[in-house]
Structure formats: structure tokens, C-alpha cells
């Protein structure tokens, strides 16, 4: 097994890092620059920064904020939220991002994903998917920070986006987000069966054991964690030691 990457996720609203439950009930948890630096020092393998209201308010990611966040950080940073043009991607890269995550605009205009891949390479373009369980046993893709229905089958959408050339997939389970109830391994298994690019999973980590479970039960490349790191359930270092003990490869 290759190394599993541990990725703290920072949901940003305005000038704060926030976190909610089921993408709602947001609470301020800290300052983006300080938290990002803390996680970098704690041994994060990457950072994922998402402006969770940019798409909803049809704004851009705050690139000045991103510049200040990335200033003293020397690990890869993925940035998402409101990305809807080649220019946005250029601005994100110039402000210190290495990859951009695209959800809302990719669903509205799938061709944009392909255009972005051609211009920046697949390694730079990450598909972000927010999936919510439906009564018929499938999952629906949501946009605008988990607020808007699309009617689109999330798993089928990922299949399609892979053909368009995206180089990585981040999948968030809206049902588990912020709940600490463990990952939606059913959803993740479904996707990991055919996903030939790195798969990052998010939503539901509550204990170190829940992280072990998703890694052992499905075939993933990275876990993105917000709540458990922000509220100190466990530290990155402790999680890595725990995974290592369970014979899961991590960078130590």
C-alpha cells in the first residue's frame, strides 16, 4: 500500500475558519493563517482550503487571504470555492495554491473541467463532490457548499468527470459531515471501485478507528479531516502514529 495522505481541511467563510454539522450551523473555529501554519507544523501532508460561500454568493475565493495563508507553508495546498474561469485558477496558483478543487461550476458546465485540465494539467484539477444519500440507495450531488440540489447522481457524475480528465477526486459525504459518525464507506467503496485517480475522502471522521476503517474497507489515497482536528479530538501526529501501528503507510 502506498502512503495515505492526511489532509486537514479548512472551511473558510469571510476571514474565519468555520465548521458546521451537515454543512450547516457554522461556528467560527479560528484564523486561517494560524490554523494552516499549526497543521503544517503538526505534520499535515497537504492542506485543503475551501471557501464555502464563494459559489453561493457568486464571489471569488479571497486570493489575498490565500496569499497570507500560504506564505509560510511548504506543503501542497488545494483551494476550492467559486472557481469558474481559467483566470480564477491562475489567480489561485499565483496566490500559493498547487491544485484547485471544482464543484459547482463543473456541474453547471462540465466542459470547463476539460478546458482547465488542458491548460493546467490533470494534476492541478481536483473534482470536489458533495454527496447526499437518497432513499433509493443512490447519492445526489449538491452544489454551493452543500446547499443546492442538482438531481444528478453523484457516483455517475464522478465517472463522467474522470473522462474529462480531472486528476484527483475529493468526495464529501454531506450526511456525515461534522457528525463524527464515521465515513460513508458504502459511498466511498462505490466510487473507489472505478476511480483511477487519487481519491480523497471527507466527512465523518470522529475517532482514529473510523479513519482506519475507511482505509481498510475501501481503496482510498487520502483522508481530509476538519472537525476532529479543529476541536482537538486527536492530533495529526497521533493519528499518523495510530495508523502506522495498524500497518497503514503514512509519512512520519
Amino acid at each position: 500500500m502506498e502512503n495515505i495522505r492526511i489532509i486537514p481541511r479548512l472551511d473558510i467563510k469571510g476571514t474565519n475558519v468555520v465548521k458546521g454539522i451537515f454543512t450547516e450551523g457554522l461556528r467560527v473555529v479560528g484564523n486561517p493563517k494560524e490554523l494552516a501554519f499549526k497543521y503544517y507544523k503538526d505534520g499535515a501532508d497537504e492542506l485543503l482550503c475551501m471557501d464555502i460561500v464563494a459559489s453561493l454568493y457568486q464571489r471569488n475565493f479571497d486570493f489575498d487571504l490565500l496569499r497570507s495563508v500560504s506564505e509560510e507553508i511548504f506543503i501542497p495546498i488545494t483551494v476550492g470555492g467559486g472557481i469558474r474561469s481559467v483566470n480564477d485558477i491562475n489567480n489561485a496558483l499565483r496566490a500559493g495554491a498547487d491544485k484547485v478543487a471544482i464543484n459547482t461550476y463543473g456541474i453547471k458546465k462540465p466542459k470547463f473541467l476539460n478546458e482547465a485540465v488542458k491548460k493546467f494539467g490533470s494534476q492541478c484539477i481536483v473534482l470536489s463532490v458533495e454527496a447526499k444519500h437518497r432513499n433509493d440507495g443512490t447519492w445526489e450531488a449538491y452544489t454551493d457548499g452543500g446547499r443546492e440540489h442538482t438531481g444528478i447522481n453523484a457516483v455517475e457524475w464522478i465517472r463522467k468527470a474522470l473522462v474529462l480528465g480531472v486528476g484527483e477526486v475529493v468526495i464529501t459525504s454531506i450526511d456525515r459531515d461534522g457528525s463524527r459518525k464515521g465515513y460513508d464507506t458504502e459511498l466511498i467503496s462505490e466510487v473507489s471501485k472505478f476511480c483511477k485517480v487519487p481519491l480523497v475522502v471527507h466527512g465523518g471522521a470522529g475517532t482514529k478507528e473510523s479513519v482506519v476503517k475507511v482505509i481498510k474497507k475501501t481503496k482510498i489515497d487520502a483522508v481530509a479531516i476538519a472537525t476532529s482536528f479543529h476541536y482537538g479530538d486527536f492530533k495529526i501526529k497521533n493519528l499518523k502514529e495510530y495508523l502506522f501501528k495498524k500497518k497503514i503507510n503514512v509519512r512520519v
Binding site: 495522505r5 486528476g167 487519487p198
Partner: peptide
């Protein structure tokens, strides 16, 4: 078998 390309991550 099953190893992903590109090689992305820490090594």
C-alpha cells in the same frame, strides 16, 4: 497492478 499514475504524494 492497481497502482495509480500520476505518482502523487509523499515518498
Amino acid at each position: 497492478m492497481g497502482i495509480k499514475i500520476p505518482h502523487i504524494g509523499w515518498n
